[in-house]
């Protein structure tokens, strides 16, 4: 067997891998007809493959799938969330932004829980009601937070009452607009409106400047 060229064995394997060219196959066949040792070798290789392939296909135990399912890690909510977050970075960014934004908005609203009003020496406070007495004139806008307002005199600007009510007595006058804000939502709306208004004022004033 040792006398045979090494490449004959190589050809056998090429043949078994089904990667042999026609010429090589011819060469191999001619050689096998002449050489008894190589013939045996080739036969043994084929027998080996046949034996290995003859082993019966065994099947997995019947409870295999159930066992796998039992061993699977329970979908942890946290793990699931993390995976979800990883796959939706844009949404996470948007959510964080929204939370922070609304947080700051509500902080502005919630922080002003106390009774307050635009400082003015001309007004009188009765409990939680601010009274602008008859004959007095408050110059500019007037705001009351968490309290009521009774106008008997005069206000030359807008009047805003947050979380309260406003009465205008027969003799009282308000030159500007009167606005009552009662709820968080309205407060939000008001904040947006005034922000837009300020923006408008700003652009208008910059327009006139330029």
């Amino acid at each position: 067997m040792n006398t045979c060229p090494e490449h004959i064995v190589h050809l056998m394997h090429e043949y078994l891998d089904e990667e042999i060219s026609q010429e090589q196959e011819k060469e191999l066949k001619t050689h096998l007809q002449q050489c008894e040792a190589c013939k045996t070798h080739f036969h043994e290789l084929k027998k080996t493959i046949a034996l290995v392939q003859s082993t019966s296909h065994i099947q997995a135990p019947s409870d295999f799938t159930a066992n796998v399912m039992n061993r699977l890690p329970k979908e942890k909510k946290k793990a699931g969330m993390n995976r979800w977050f990883q796959r939706h970075p844009l949404f996470v960014a948007a959510a964080v932004f929204f939370v922070l934004m609304s947080g700051s908005l509500f902080a502005t609203w919630g922080g002003d829980n106390e009774f307050a009003f635009t400082p003015s020496e001309k007004v009188v406070v009765e409990g939680s009601t601010v009274v602008i007495p008859e004959g007095e004139t408050v110059e500019g806008d007037f705001t009351v937070r968490n309290g009521d307002l009774r106008v008997e005199g005069e206000v030359t600007g807008n009047v805003t009452v947050i979380n309260g009510e406003q009465y205008t007595a027969g003799a009282g006058t308000v030159t500007g607009e009167i606005e009552e804000i009662d709820q968080a939502f309205e407060w939000l709306w008001y904040s947006i409106k005034s922000a837009v208004k300020e923006l408008g004022d700003f652009s208008r004033s910059s327009d006139t400047e330029s």
């Binding site: 065994i58 295999f64 799938t65």
Partner: peptide, 28 residues
């Protein structure tokens, strides 16, 4: 997140995977 869908995958491949493991390890 559907774990049951994985059960179906296991069902499809279990025999082949088990068989390869058995021939590699020689022990059921």
């Amino acid at each position: 997140g559907d774990q049951n869908a994985f059960g179906e995958i296991v069902e499809l491949y279990k025999d082949r995977v088990y068989h390869v493991c058995f021939r590699m390890l020689g022990n059921r």
